[in-house]
């Protein structure tokens, strides 16, 4: 029990719970199936993004290019399928988008692991490059008449409920894809050698190499995987919005990173859990969707999120600082 209480997930969970209770006590609309499903629905695409950002941060880097990759791959693949009037299984659309994302992710990996450039600056550069290329050479106007398989996919729902006022609410099937990705990442980090390698690389790159991990291979895997996942997430976004808009997702990266960091993942690498990141995301989404239920005007959102980042990371950093000082006093 004491061990549980020391984890940062515990504190995030308490904050989320408290926020839920406060909002719930102020507004009866909060604890309804409709609102719950709304929360989940708005977490489907960010859920995958959070996993991407978390993997990179655990490995000691930082990636701001995943929204650009997602946009690029979803728009390109929709455009390709649209121009050939595609009418086959929907899986192909996801594969295509994921494949494009994988290629873009590998471009990141080349700069980061072969040239050993700082990850933040590389991904800032590639993200500007990808979205610039997309909007100049591929197109800048949205595609609203999606290929038929994507449309049918977007209409399929699971967990259907009919609430009191007779409106049927359900979740898009895409929620299963997100769940799959989350489980996959959790298994990857917990049970595979690659997962151990990611933690080791983030903890200390030199020691990781000394004990036999190849940083280049791990980094290629991470950035490739992140690209692939971002591509899939982009496609999900397209099906959920029922159109493909090349500027939709851009600019969401900082909020996602904020969610990951709030969930206890250390920006210096080596620490972080799937559960924590999901809780962090839940916190951010709740603030975005439900702050208004508390009667707080929506223009306070940014302020609250900024304050949360500072407080959340501040508390963690302060604890680290104090424990270092404590250790020093024991040594001397």
């Amino acid at each position: 029990m004491k061990k549980v209480m020391q984890t940062s997930e515990f504190y995030v969970a308490i904050v989320v719970l408290a926020l839920f209770l406060v909002i719930g006590s102020q507004s009866s609309a909060f604890f309804t199936i409709t609102n719950l499903f709304d929360l989940i629905r708005s977490g489907i695409v960010p859920g995958i993004f959070v996993m991407c950002a978390m993997l990179v941060i655990i490995s000691g880097g930082i990636d701001v290019s995943f929204p650009a990759i997602a946009t690029f791959s979803m728009f390109c693949s929709t455009k390709i399928l649209h121009s050939m009037h595609y009418d086959g299984p929907v899986l192909v659309a996801f594969l295509l988008s994921g494949l494009i994302g994988l290629c873009l992710g590998l471009i990141n990996a080349v700069f980061i692991s072969l040239f050993r450039l700082p990850t933040l600056i590389v991904t800032l550069g590639t993200s500007s490059m990808f979205s610039g290329f997309l909007l100049t050479f591929v197109g800048s106007s949205q595609i609203s008449d999606l290929p038929k398989p994507l449309l049918t996919f977007s209409k399929e729902q699971i967990f259907k409920f009919t609430n009191d006022s007779g409106i049927t609410v359900g979740l898009p099937v895409a929620v299963l894809v997100s769940l799959g990705v989350i489980v996959l990442v959790a298994l990857l980090l917990r049970y595979t050698m690659m997962g151990r390698g990611i933690y080791a690389l983030g903890g200390d790159a030199v020691s990781a190499q000394r004990i036999g991990f190849s940083p280049i291979r791990i980094q290629f895997f991470i950035y490739g995987f992140v690209g692939l996942m971002a591509g899939v997430a982009g496609m999900i976004h397209t099906t959920m919005m029922r159109n493909s808009n090349p500027v939709d997702l851009l600019g969401t990266e900082l909020l996602i990173i904020a969610a990951v960091v709030l969930g206890g993942t250390r920006i210096t690498g080596g620490h972080g859990t799937v559960l924590g990141s999901l809780l962090g995301l839940l916190l951010v989404i709740t603030i975005q969707n439900s702050l208004i239920l508390l009667g707080i005007p929506s223009y306070w959102q940014r302020f609250v999120i900024g304050a949360l980042i500072l407080i959340g990371t501040g508390v963690a950093a302060y604890q680290v600082k104090r424990s270092i000082m404590k250790r020093k006093s024991i040594v001397s």
Partner: peptide
Amino acid sequence: ILVTLGTMQLFMG
């Protein structure tokens, strides 16, 4: 990077 990420949101907020 985290401080300025947070204050970026904070100041804009």
